[in-house]
Structure formats: structure tokens, C-alpha cells
Design a protein around this nucleic acid. Structure first.
Length: 214
DNA sequence: AAGTATCT
DNA sequence: ACAT
């Protein structure tokens, strides 16, 4: 039974499939620090809509922090230490980000996770991310840690092949999804965001995705 | 194809 | 299906 307010979801761990876990409300107590850090990062490296190799503008607005940032342009997908929009290094990974990532990974059974990249995605109503694999990282032994903030979204969690049936999981403010090991290369995405309002983020959803990219 | 168009 |  859901609470009267979306943010009242009780904390808890649920295994989605082998190697993938939903940590409900895991980041909730840190929302103020996380949102302040996102705001500071976006002042240095603003959210922008990147272009896919196919020449399409992504509906999700993105920025990064950490030693490496995920980027896409007509040449392909990759990680780079330099923000192509500013010509400077991505903002440093805030300590509260690193701490959240290692703790969430540990809670899911992946000890010693040290993220060197954090992709920050901003979703407006209607924005989506079609099913894809995270496969631009150097090795796949480290898990992926995905933190949801703001309006609720439907997280799509599929299989190893694109055509595999995807599970639909409602992720709300403060929820964290961690996947690694046998689930590391599973397809995943976000269904078109339904219009809603969040007290702190208005119409937006923010997602922090931590990786060991290098 | 981390996106879009088009068809059932 | 398409084919950066």
C-alpha cells in the first residue's frame, strides 16, 4: 500500500532480477545536499541536449561531474574528461555523490565501488530514454548506480537482448537502482515522463547515474 | 539507435 | 525497419 504522499515510500531492498536491486528511498535523507550539488554543477557545466550518432537531438538534457563524463555527438558515444561545451574539465565529483554511490552499491552487494563518472540527466514532461545498454565503460565488473530525484518515472528494465521483455518499475524521489554482475549489460530506459509536480524540482525528474568508466 | 517513422 |  502506497502512502498518502509519494515520498513516504518505506525504505527497503527489492531484487528486480539477479544482480539488480531497487533500494527504495535510499537517497531520500540526502536530497538537500544532492540538489544543491546538482545546481552548483549545472552552473559550471550547463544541461544541454546532446546529438546522437544518427543526428538526433536527445530529449533528455545532460551534464556530468567527475573525472570522466559521458558524451554523444555525430562521432559516437564515449567518455571524455573535458566538457565539449565549455572546453574545460567536468566539475569535480562532490563528496556526497561519491559517498552515496559507494553506500548504495554496497547495500546491493557490490563492495568497493568507486565511481569516476556521474552522468546527470534532466527529464521534462514527455522526455524519454529508449532501451539501451551501458557499454562505453572500460570494464563491466563495476555496477551502475542510478539515483532518482523529482517527479516519478517508469524505469524500464529489460534483458541482455534488445527484444527481451522489459519490466516496468515506478521510481520516485530518493529511490536508487543498482545493477551489476549478471545484470550489468541489461537493456534499460525510461518511459516518456508523465507530467507531474514535485515540491523541490517542479516539473522535472533528475537522475544521477554513477559509473566506473575508466 | 542513449532515436524516429511506419505498419499492424 | 532504418543504417549515423
Amino acid at each position: 500500500m502506497r502512502g498518502l504522499f509519494e515520498d513516504e515510500n518505506p525504505a527497503g531492498k527489492e531484487e528486480i532480477v539477479g544482480g539488480a536491486f531497487l533500494l527504495r528511498a535510499f537517497a531520500l535523507a540526502r536530497e538537500a545536499a544532492l540538489l544543491a550539488a546538482v545546481e552548483a554543477i549545472a552552473k559550471v557545466s550547463p544541461f544541454r541536449h546532446m546529438i546522437t550518432p544518427g543526428g538526433f537531438r536527445m530529449s533528455v538534457a545532460m551534464t556530468n561531474c567527475g573525472g570522466l563524463g559521458w558524451i554523444t555527438d555525430r562521432r559516437g558515444y564515449r567518455y571524455d574528461a573535458i566538457d565539449p561545451e565549455t572546453g574545460r574539465k567536468w566539475p569535480a565529483m562532490p563528496p556526497e555523490f561519491s559517498q552515496l554511490a559507494v553506500e548504495a552499491a554496497g547495500e546491493a552487494g557490490f563492495s568497493g565501488f568507486h565511481a569516476d563518472a556521474c552522468l546527470i540527466n534532466r527529464y521534462a514532461p514527455g522526455t524519454r530514454l529508449t532501451l539501451h545498454q551501458d557499454k562505453n565503460e572500460q570494464d563491466y565488473t563495476a555496477p551502475i548506480v542510478s539515483v532518482s530525484l523529482g517527479v516519478p518515472a517508469t524505469f524500464l528494465f529489460g534483458g541482455i537482448e534488445r527484444g527481451d521483455k522489459a519490466r516496468r518499475i515506478l521510481v520516485t524521489h530518493g529511490d536508487v537502482v543498482v545493477w551489476g554482475g549478471p545484470a550489468r549489460l541489461r537493456y534499460h530506459g525510461i518511459a516518456p515522463l508523465k507530467a507531474a509536480q514535485h515540491p523541490k524540482l517542479g516539473e522535472y525528474r533528475i537522475n544521477l547515474t554513477f559509473r566506473k568508466a575508466g
